[in-house]
């Protein structure tokens, strides 16, 4: 099996996000960068598949120089090689432009299945997997919590509101990972040592023979709307406080 996993480097979930004063983006100073948590599930699923059916796992990542660290993390988990798309033209790229770059890289290699995360936790847009599938002419199976394949077809479970769809598809296909799919492994120390020697191709867009065009952009970033300060219901008796709360919810907030 030729397995591809797309990974994105994102700020750690603990990161304090500060918008630059001119609203042009976020202040990246002091941010710790990590692999997008959903991509960890994608990489893990790729590795499990390789263990079951044989083959190799290629990591594809678009991002600036620092993103190499995230590729190495995936290699340390057990992936075999990487493609790092590094091009200043991708700065501020939208999902369409990013997917165009990923598709160009993936077109150049053999693939049977492509894993993505269901969304990246920075832009939170959850589109790259689907657009990538469209650009490669493949079916998409998104937000998947269970995946099974014999190498020719794939069967997944996709939860929706109040139900779960069991879907079958031909391969190749793009599968986007949701929490619950598996428990991602940690990189072992020998894994980390080995990862240093695994091949990573660094390519710019010209080398991929593609140019990208964003279809949308973030014109301005703003801090979240402030919430008015809350009210702590004082007192010693839980029953009295509960009664007060119920009254406030009914009469002031009007939500019950």
């Amino acid at each position: 099996m030729n397995i591809v996993a797309c990974v994105k480097q994102v700020p750690d979930t603990e990161a304090q996000i500060k918008v630059k004063p001119d609203g042009s983006g976020i202040d990246e100073s002091g941010i710790k960068w990590v692999m997008n948590p959903y991509d960890e599930y994608g990489v893990e699923e790729a590795l499990k598949l390789k263990e079951k059916l044989g083959g190799d796992v290629t990591i594809v990542c678009a991002g600036p120089a620092r993103a190499m660290e995230t590729i190495r993390t995936a290699l340390a988990m057990g992936a075999d090689k990487g493609i790092h798309i590094d091009d200043p033209a991708l700065e501020g790229a939208d999902a369409y432009a990013t997917a165009t770059a990923l598709a160009a890289a993936i077109k150049g290699i053999p693939y049977d299945v492509i894993f993505c995360g269901q969304r990246a936790i920075d832009d939170d847009s959850g589109q790259v997997g689907a657009i990538l599938a469209e650009l490669l002419g493949l079916p998409q199976l998104t937000v998947v919590t269970k995946e099974e394949t014999d190498g020719k077809t794939v069967k997944v479970v996709r939860p929706v509101e109040g139900a779960a769809f069991v879907i079958e598809s031909s391969l190749p296909a793009v599968v986007t990972a949701q929490k619950g799919l598996n428990e991602p492994r940690y990189a072992s120390l020998p894994g980390i040592m080995k990862a240093k020697k695994k091949p990573v191709d660094v390519k710019n867009l010209a080398a991929l023979g593609v140019s990208v065009e964003s279809k949308s952009k973030v014109a301005k970033m703003v801090p979240p709307p402030a919430r008015p300060p809350g009210k702590i219901i004082a007192g010693d008796d839980p029953a009295v406080k509960a009664a007060e709360l119920a009254k406030l919810l009914r009469e002031e907030a009007k939500v019950i």
Partner: peptide, 17 residues
């Protein structure tokens, strides 16, 4: 207008297509 970075900031998105 959409939350980004898990609601830690909001982005105003405009379109060119």
């Amino acid at each position: 207008v959409r939350p980004m970075y898990a609601g830690k900031c909001y982005g105003e998105v405009v379109f060119s297509a």
